[in-house]
Design a protein around this nucleic acid. Structure first.
Lengths: 144, 144
DNA sequence: TTATAAAAAGATTTGAATATCCGAATTCAT
DNA sequence: ATGAATTCGGATATTCAAATCTTTTTATAA
């Protein structure tokens, strides 16, 4: 469903939301260390998120990343679209060429459409603020 | 969501269902030609489906593949499980290690669970017989 | 019984996603 | 100013799914 890249992006963004706004900036090393993700790869991903205005980044000592807007205003849908593009939200389930033409939908087309809409809605409804809240209210210590 | 391999498998199985039971066996060349899929790759896939009792295969002249049971008795769920395994039906949406342990579900866990169940239900409810019927009832000529 | 047509099986290649590396640019603190 | 810490950007390496190739096995038909 989601690429590794998207998954990492989401987890990193949630991590940032968890520590926002008390801390302003967090560096790659800390994030990748806490989430147990490969640092150089995560760096690339955050770079893309920054270029797409979901993150602010600053270089130099005490540099790092911070959410570019209020955590409650960033949805998983935005993150996924930036990283993976729109494919999961509009591609034919079984990759039939003619499914995109008029009058020849694939046999799963309409049945899948409602599921696809559910998926899209799920991602659109989840924002980093809410997810961070959920984590904070959990009993056990949370290891992202 | 689905691997190419699964998509090809599904399309080939639907193709067989469309021509069953009037024709008994169909060869790789015909299927790959009609569906515009790479023949050697499709051969591998059908091999796996045959090994897992979803297809019958016979070698030699006039050999080929046929559905191992009535089209209405083969669901997409079975096909996907044979090819891709169970991952899409049980993996954590964001691949969090702790999501499989007690008390530390990922923040998307419960929200995703219902969507995942929808997906599973969709695949379990679709059988090759029904899909083939749908195609036959379409107005335009259908190019799988 | 032999030639042929097909699938099976295994080895290899390709390509895209994933991951790493390194030099450049930027910022901060001294 | 200088050095150190950090992200940036481009190039490179690795891995795995996807695709191909080659040889073997089996079945059919002449």
């Amino acid at each position: 469903m989601l690429s590794n890249t998207s998954k990492y992006a989401i987890r990193a963004m949630i991590y940032l939301a968890l520590h926002t706004p008390s801390v302003k900036k967090i560096g790659i090393k800390q994030i990748s260390g806490e989430l147990d993700l490969p640092a150089p790869f995560l760096a690339k991903i955050l770079q893309v998120l920054a270029k797409n205005k979901l993150l602010n980044s600053s270089k130099g000592p005490n540099g790092g990343f911070s959410l570019a807007k209020d955590a409650s205003k960033i949805t998983l849908y935005e993150i996924i679209r930036v990283i993976d593009g729109n494919d999961i939200f509009d591609q034919c389930l079984i990759s039939m060429r003619t499914c995109y033409e008029e009058g020849t939908p694939c046999p799963m087309h309409f049945r899948y459409e409602s599921v696809r809409n559910e998926i899209k809605k799920m991602f659109q409804e989840q924002n980093l603020g809410g997810l961070a809240e959920d984590i904070k209210s959990q009993e056990k210590i949370f290891a992202l």
